[in-house]
Every structure is written in structure tokens, then in C-alpha cells.
Nucleic acid binder design. Sequence first.
DNA 1: AAGTTAAGCGGATTCCTATCCGCTTAGCAA
DNA 2: TTGCTAAGCGGATAGGAATCCGCTTAACTT
Lengths: 214, 214
Amino acid sequence: MGEASGPGRVELTVLGQAPVERADAARNRRRILDAASRLLAEQGPEAVTMNAVAAAAGMGVGTVYRRFGDVATLLLALLDHREQQFQEAFLDGPAPLGPGAPPADRLRAFLYALTDHIAAHRTVMLAAETASPMALYRSAAYVAWHAHVSMLLHRTRPEADEAVLAHLLLAPFGPGLIRHLSDDRGTPLDEFKAAVDHLLGMCLPVRADGASAD
Amino acid sequence: MGEASGPGRVELTVLGQAPVERADAARNRRRILDAASRLLAEQGPEAVTMNAVAAAAGMGVGTVYRRFGDVATLLLALLDHREQQFQEAFLDGPAPLGPGAPPADRLRAFLYALTDHIAAHRTVMLAAETASPMALYRSAAYVAWHAHVSMLLHRTRPEADEAVLAHLLLAPFGPGLIRHLSDDRGTPLDEFKAAVDHLLGMCLPVRADGASAD
DNA sequence: AAGTTAAGCGGATTCCTATCCGCTTAGCAA
DNA sequence: TTGCTAAGCGGATAGGAATCCGCTTAACTT
């Protein structure tokens, strides 16, 4: 919907996002994110309700809902910056997390890093999951994780149904399980990482040839 | 549920549940379950709200909340009968699901059966998960599954941290992922089962000795 | 049978989510 | 500049979650 008729149309559709966003809409998006961020910092995740955000941002609830369909989406949007850093790390960063190491090593490194990443943003992700369990799967973050794991699995185990298998491997990283282990059972995160390590140790090393890395 | 004061006090605390339940409380629990079950059958899972159940059962909302802390707990309670049948099948039923087969075979059989079990009650479990993501982990059902998988893992892989590992193996069976695969991506359930099979195939057969079964 | 008390009861209440729809305005065209 | 129109805006509204607290009652005691 961009590209009008004039010859010098410079504006470019940034990332395949929405079909362009009106100026007031963009301004309000910022205001919403700022207000939400402030609420989160000052009063914790429970205080981030659509009503509270709208009030803090000085606008109607309808506007907040127009930008972010639900609380979970809004909360996950707050993590966007960190998420992009994480993505860069496993897409372009140094090995073994980034390209250059054998796929099996990269997979292990990725799941380790993912554990830390989720642990770091645990509170917000927990709140998001509680507000709307399915939001994570629809987030750009999860899609990227899944694509990455699928790719690595495909190189490690070409015979597998890597798409579904990647979902299975990522399932334990949903905030639900981590919350259960940490809060309800007091399991330290190191044990979780050790178990992930153990699981990979069982699954992966069958063919540890360091074929074409990248 | 009568059994008054006479010498022949037959009543027995069924399963270590609550420290006994007053007669009116028990009666209301039944009424709530019946009303909820009716709503579920006639109007689907979305219609099962605490308000609607209370109205259908002819009582106040507070009473419903007293018996079942939230919608998810109530929904899961509706599955209790089926859940007990499932438990009997893997605790006492015929091998390989029940005792008698090598642990690795039993684990595979269990995860297969669990897939079917969850698929069969998918709608309700999905609704429960949506209402309260953590409810499943606290349910008697999940605790039993976890105990069973832990036990089998311990026999297959004594060196592992079987408790955490069991959580990892069970994570894909949360309704969240299954909903995502089925509804959002149209993946048939057979593919899911095949991937589970594949995952086990990678993890387990290292030592397939049929040692002491049971 | 009557007394005692902890448990149960239930609806009023508060806060939230989510949607709807008439009003406003940015951004384009003439 | 002056319309025009699709997009955006926002508050009113509907309905559910969850809690609270004064009243009621089952069930044990004597």
C-alpha cells in the first residue's frame, strides 16, 4: 500500500511490517511503549494492564488495543530490543553460537544461550504467558528461534522432520515450565541447563562430523 | 456420603484428598461438575465460565470458587474420570504400556498413549491452558505423568537427573504446542507422533537390554 | 437434644479484558 | 488551499475473574 505515483518516493517499507503507519499512530505506539515500560519498571508486570497503560499514556483503551492486540503482545514488544541483540548473536556473532562451528555445537550453544536469555527476561515473559499462552508462538522471537533450530537440526539430522522436531526441542523453554521449576519446585536454573545438556548429549553426538559449518 | 456416628464408621478418606468434606460441600461439588459438564457439552468450552456455571448450578459464584480455584482447575476436574482410566492403563494395564516390558519400550508406549490421550481431550485441555497456563502442572494428572516418566527414565538412564529430564520430555505435550501445531499450522497429529518417535529413537535405544521389567 | 464452632455459602464489589462505533484527523489530490 | 477519505482515536459498554465478608448450617460434643 506504499508507493504512490510521484517519481521521488523515498520512503521505504522498513521490515515488511504494516503497510505504512500514520504519523499519529507511530507517535502513539511510542507513547504506549514508554508508558508500559515505566509501569513495568516501577510496579512490576502485574501493573501492566491495558487500562493502566492507556491511562499512563494519556489515551483511550481502544487505541492501545489497536496497536497491540493484547497484554502479552505488548509485553513481548517491550523485549524487542533485547531480542534483536540475541538474534544477532546467533545469526552473525562469534562461534560456536554464531556461524563457523559444527551444527551440533551451535545447537548446544544456542539452547544454552536461550536458557540464559529467557532467564534474564523471565518475569516479563512469565507475565506475557499468563496473559495469553499462545502469544509466544506468534511472536517474531519464537519464529526466529524455531527457524534457527530447524536449520541446525536439518544439518545434523537430515532425515528428521526438523520443523516439528524443533518445536519439541523448544517446548521446554516456554515460560510455563521454567516458572514451574523455579517458583513451584525451587529447582535452580543450573539444573535445568544441565538437563538440557544431558538431553542433547543423548540426541546429538551420533554424527559429530564437523562438515560444512555456517 | 452419609455414614453417621454409629460404631461401624465405614467412610474412608478416599485418596488423601481434603481432610474430609462436609455433606453440603460434596453435594455442591457434584452440582458444579454436572452443570459445568452440561455447559461444556451443549455450548463448548468457552461457555464454561465461573459465572455461567454458578448460574447453571443455581448457586453463588463464591461457592464455585471455593470448590475450584479457577476455570482451568474446574475444566481439568471434568476430565478426571478419563484421566484415572489412563493412569490405570499405564500403571496396571497390559505391556508395553503397563508393567512387563523394558523401560525404554514402556516410555515409548507411554508417550504415544499420552499423545492420543491429549488429542482426545484437546478441546477441554486447550481451554484450561488458556484460562490458566500453570494449572496443568499442579494437576494430579501431570504429577502422575511426571512420576511415571521419571521412574522409567531412571531405569533407562540411571545417571540422568530424571526429575528435570522428565519435565523436558513432557513439555511438548502441553496443550499450547499442540494447539499451535494443529490450529495455527495445520500439522496433522501423526506428524507430531512421528517426531516424538524420532526424538525417542535418538535418545533411548543406546541400551535396549530388557533387564528387570516393571 | 442442645450448644458450639469451623466450614460453607453467595452475592455485592472491584478490576480487567475486549469490542464497538461515532467522531477526528493525517495525508493525499486537484 | 481546499476537500476527500481511509486510518486512527477513545470512551462507553458488556461480560468475566476473583475477592470479601456477614449470614447460615453441618456435624461434632456433652
